[in-house]
């Protein structure tokens, strides 16, 4: 039964991706992209990677889809003349070359990777029971610090480009009851994902994305208006994650002599502190990426 499901899933991913690429209507294309993202996150689940599935569903499909929908009206219409065949051929050749390289890499991967056993052996001293969190916040915390820096750079670029903020209009009598149900739930689910990250799939990125989703729904419903988004406090919150992470790295350097080498036995406290700061900061960053920066005076 499950092989049938997998084949149908793979076919559905290809079909929805093709729809997203070739449908003429822009909204339909974005919908195709959203469906592709959801199906891809299902396939991550089938591949046994629920952490990636959560991130893909929340950020890849949800928030990226919202950003694309927000931009769909603003970008001028695509040129009606078709792309030259040479460009199509070049893109096709590139895609085939990349797929070939991936297939070659996977098939030539003789020995089993050493990472899983290394992580499993050292998990008890990492301060997290979830191997993914142990890698992200302890063994390879350096990489995560740089990822947060990338998010910060993206926000900086958006602030410099200063896009027009979406104009929100009151959306009718049903939206406030909707927000009353939705917002407490996003806070609850965000907190749950953050805490769960210690021993099961979850963590700061997923929790931050869920919080940002709730905040964006609230912003779009016009309930908070643009008053809150104009405050610089949100931008400060957005950069606080990177600042606290970097400070923690330096503090660990002073305490133990290793950058991001947490003091023995206290790793869990450090990880929870960093992840909590990151959750709020990621939520603020994603919200600002959607609504545009605070206005300069």
């Amino acid at each position: 039964m499950l092989p049938v499901f997998d084949v149908v899933l793979a076919a559905a991913i290809l079909v929805s991706a093709a729809l997203a690429l070739w449908v003429r209507d822009r909204i339909a294309a974005v919908s195709g992209f959203l469906v592709t993202g959801l199906l891809v996150s299902l396939s991550w689940l089938r591949l046994g990677a629920p952490d990636v599935a959560l991130a893909e569903a929340a950020i890849g499909a949800g928030l990226t889809g919202a950003l694309l929908l927000r931009s769909a009206h603003r970008i001028p219409c695509a040129p009606s003349k078709a792309l030259p065949p040479s460009l199509w051929c070049a893109a096709g050749a590139l895609a085939i070359a990349i797929s070939g390289a991936i297939v070659w890499t996977v098939t030539s991967f003789g020995a089993a990777p050493v990472y899983p056993s290394l992580v499993a052996d050292n998990l008890p001293e990492s301060g997290a029971q979830n191997p993914v969190t142990a890698v992200l916040l302890n063994f390879r915390a350096w990489d995560t610090l740089l990822e947060i820096a990338v998010l910060f750079v993206a926000l900086t670029v958006v602030i410099m480009v200063a896009p027009a903020r979406p104009r929100t209009a009151p959306l009718g009598p049903l939206v406030q009851p909707f927000a009353r149900v939705l917002l407490p739930l996003t806070v609850l689910i965000g907190g749950h994902l953050l805490w769960q990250g210690g021993h099961a799939p979850g963590g700061a990125f997923q929790a931050g994305a869920v919080l940002a989703g709730g905040a964006i729904a609230l912003g779009l419903s016009g309930v908070i208006g643009s008053k809150l988004t104009r405050q610089n406090g949100l931008a400060l919150l957005a950069i606080a994650g990177l600042a606290i992470f970097a400070l923690a790295a330096l503090a660990a350097e002073v305490l133990t002599g290793a950058l991001l080498g947490y003091p023995a036995g206290e790793a869990k406290t450090w990880i929870i502190a960093i992840e909590s700061a990151l959750t709020l900061s990621i939520a603020a960053t994603l919200f600002l990426l959607f609504f545009g920066p605070a206005e300069r005076h």
Binding site: L174, V175, F178, V181, L182, L185
Partner: peptide, 14 residues
């Protein structure tokens, strides 16, 4: 179920 019901009704209304 609650989230699907609430968001379905709200988006349909919108």
């Amino acid at each position: 179920t609650l989230l699907v019901a609430v968001s379905g009704a709200t988006t349909g209304h919108l």
